[in-house]
Computed example of a mutant assay.
Amino acid sequence: MIARYDGYMLRQLIAMWGFFTLVLAGVFWISRSIGLFSTLLAGGHSPWVFFELTAFTLPTLVRTVMPMAVFAAVVYVTNRLRRESELVVLQAIGTSPLRLARPILYFALLSSVMIGAITLYLRPESIAAYDRREAELEQDVAAKLLREGTFLHPMDSVVLYFGEVNSDSTLRDVFLSDRRNPDQTLTYTASEAYLVPQDDELYVVMVNGMAARYSTQTEALSVTWFEDFTFDVSSFGRFDETAERGLRSLPTWQLMSQRAQLAATGRFTEGQMAEELQERLSWIGICATVAMVGFAALLMGAHSRFGLWAQIGISFVVLIGLEGARGAAGKMVGEDPSMWWAYHAPTAIGFALSLVFLHFAGRPLRRPNTGN
């Protein structure tokens, strides 16, 4: 019986892990995607762009929900096996809590390997790809600026308005106000204009319009009617071809081996890089910890047809405390990189607590015998 126990429990853990990961990831994905979807559609982008950008956020999303899914899978499977007396029978034939925890340890190692691949490699690469794609979208000035019926502010002291934007790049009811020069205000209006891209620049050619110049010093207003007038929309805000890669998108190997070179650029401090690196590594340990703590806490409880809600609550409180300690450790490492070990202290504490719980599970407290 015990020889088949490891594979039997491991299969159930993996199945429930996949189920809870899909459910939690779906809930988080919907809640986070609504705002992005509205913004992209309002900017004139196709739904395909939305799915492309959300695909880049999946590694971050999966990393966020994976420890919760691991904990939920362990608690669900352990509680069910206790309720159906399967674990009780194994304990009755003399199986130690440490032996019962072996498939949980295998499962913890498996989940740690997966979250390690995500947090150390896939997530930084996906963030970098997201930044590059976002920079490409920002280069599309037409999609960023040309919105019908809205007063736009591409930069300080500049206001643009387009009453209608047609698919053939024809613009209707164009208004441009330029107050960048404090001594004068320039205003351009036209009933019709055309969008003309040329040499990586974007021009708007206004026809049959009016240009008004107002001097704030002399309070003089001059008006000129024109047949055509061209202005460079790109000059109102240039966007770099490649967005500057943030700290979260840096490859892990750079944070490990090139911190001195990165610090010399002035973009990041030693504390920031140490915090980011240790934060990535800490996800590996904390994912294994939640599995061990959840199982060990439930194993302490006595058999009950109504489940082990008290033990589930204890394990949940312990994990909240460990996560709070991990957050506090992040600030310590950011201020003093030599305190890098503080980020991994919650993992060590969690494993120590799981061993204590397993010890008490093997030696349950007995009520004193008051009979004669």
Score class of each variant (00 low, 15 high):
residue 126 S to Y: 09
residue 141 V to W: 12
residue 96 S to V: 08
residue 113 V to C: 10
residue 108 A to D: 03
residue 118 I to K: 04
residue 141 V to P: 02
residue 141 V to A: 11
residue 118 I to D: 04
residue 97 P to M: 05
residue 108 A to E: 00
residue 106 Y to R: 12
residue 139 Q to T: 05
residue 139 Q to Y: 03
residue 112 S to Q: 09
residue 106 Y to W: 13
residue 106 Y to G: 07
residue 115 I to T: 14
residue 138 E to K: 13
residue 112 S to G: 13
residue 113 V to W: 04
residue 99 R to M: 09
residue 132 R to E: 09
residue 134 E to M: 15
residue 119 T to E: 15
residue 131 D to C: 06
residue 117 A to P: 03
residue 102 R to K: 12
residue 102 R to D: 02
residue 107 F to W: 05
residue 134 E to C: 07
residue 129 A to N: 13
residue 118 I to E: 00
residue 103 P to N: 03
residue 111 S to H: 04
residue 115 I to M: 09
residue 129 A to W: 15
residue 114 M to A: 13
residue 143 A to K: 15
residue 132 R to L: 07
residue 109 L to N: 03
residue 125 E to S: 12
residue 109 L to M: 13
residue 103 P to T: 01
residue 100 L to E: 00
residue 109 L to S: 05
residue 131 D to E: 15
residue 136 E to C: 03
residue 136 E to F: 04
residue 126 S to N: 06
residue 128 A to W: 00
residue 96 S to M: 04
residue 95 T to F: 10
residue 124 P to Y: 01
residue 119 T to L: 03
residue 132 R to D: 08
residue 96 S to L: 10
residue 101 A to G: 06
residue 103 P to G: 03
residue 129 A to P: 02
residue 136 E to R: 10
residue 97 P to D: 06
residue 123 R to S: 13
residue 116 G to T: 09
residue 98 L to N: 09
residue 106 Y to Q: 09
residue 141 V to N: 06
residue 128 A to G: 10
residue 112 S to D: 03
residue 123 R to K: 13
residue 130 Y to P: 01
residue 104 I to L: 12
residue 131 D to N: 13
residue 123 R to Y: 08
residue 141 V to R: 13
residue 141 V to D: 02
residue 112 S to W: 02
residue 123 R to V: 10
residue 130 Y to G: 07
residue 120 L to H: 05
residue 108 A to T: 02
residue 98 L to M: 12
residue 95 T to M: 13
residue 99 R to E: 09
residue 144 K to F: 07
residue 126 S to E: 02
residue 110 L to S: 09
residue 121 Y to R: 06
residue 105 L to W: 11
residue 95 T to S: 11
residue 118 I to N: 09
residue 96 S to H: 12
residue 112 S to Y: 04
residue 136 E to N: 07
residue 140 D to K: 11
residue 121 Y to S: 08
residue 108 A to G: 05
residue 123 R to D: 13
residue 105 L to T: 11
residue 99 R to N: 07
residue 122 L to T: 02
residue 129 A to K: 15
residue 136 E to W: 06
residue 119 T to I: 15
residue 103 P to F: 05
residue 103 P to V: 02
residue 122 L to V: 07
residue 105 L to M: 13
residue 123 R to G: 05
residue 144 K to A: 09
residue 115 I to C: 10
residue 122 L to K: 01
residue 140 D to M: 10
residue 120 L to C: 11
residue 134 E to F: 14
residue 135 A to T: 01
residue 137 L to I: 13
residue 145 L to R: 12
residue 137 L to N: 03
residue 144 K to P: 01
residue 113 V to K: 05
residue 98 L to A: 12
residue 107 F to E: 06
residue 127 I to N: 09
residue 142 A to H: 11
residue 134 E to W: 14
residue 127 I to C: 00
residue 141 V to E: 08
residue 133 R to E: 09
residue 120 L to E: 01
residue 131 D to L: 13
residue 130 Y to F: 15
